[in-house]
Amino acid sequence: MNIIKTLSQNKVAMVGFAVLVMLILVAVLGPYVYEGTPWKMVQRPFIPPFENSSYLLGTDILGRDVLAGLIYGTRISLLVSFVSTVIALLIGIPLGAYAGYFGGWVDEVLMRFTEIFQTVPSFALAIVLVAIFEPSVYSITGAIALVSWPPVARLVRGEFLRLRNQEYVLAAKLNGQSNRNIILKEILPNSLSPIIVLASLMVATAILLESSLAFLGLGDPEIMSWGYMIGSSRTVIRQAWWLSFIPGVAIAVTVLALNLLGEGLNDALNPKLSGKRES
């Protein structure tokens, strides 16, 4: 299709895409390469990177393999961020769609509700939720989803408000189409592009949120994550700066790759800003 062609011509977006594919491969295949658990102490602590050939990135304060931690961290980062984004979309899209399509008091009620969630400082809410429901993959994913859906709802509502008075939608009404059909077949397909762009940026934000939670000690205690790696080596930053440095780079690269892809998608799907204007 046209969009894929446009996107594939965007080199920067393709770099982002390639990095993302690589990370997904690492997440999926990594555990087969590094069997066992990243929590295992394999060597003496504080081996700097590139010193010991079997532990390429060295070992941490407890002598655990940094590279293994990094690989397992990729899994949890991607898993939590993708799943939480999907949940946020599942909450936000129907909510925004109903509010935008029906308008009136439905819109009023749903948007007040959304506004409350948007007012609450999202990171603080995530902290409170994870803390009270005990840190676990589920509570973390749920908390991130719960603080991420309001922008989706607002975006979808805006799109529906814009599209519901488009003449093709009115024509569908005159055809006697059900509201469900109009929402799903007439309006939603035409509002997908900005949703896709937003979703790609939400995954990036979710990764940042997940790592921040883990950094504060709110990670799943069973699972090795990038944020935890940084948080646990915070006290030894003077002795072993690389222990915090390396996972941070991993986070930044992942988020950057997602943002680049998102930007590329935005240019391909919403050509408004890409500078190629019709004359």
Partner: peptide
């Protein structure tokens, strides 16, 4: 902007203190 947008805040803070303080 893209790079700073992608960098985790807490990590940036740690690296900054490492560089400018330590």
């Amino acid at each position: 902007a893209l790079v700073f947008y992608a960098t985790p805040l807490f990590w940036l803070a740690m690296m900054a203190s490492l560089l400018f303080s330590v």
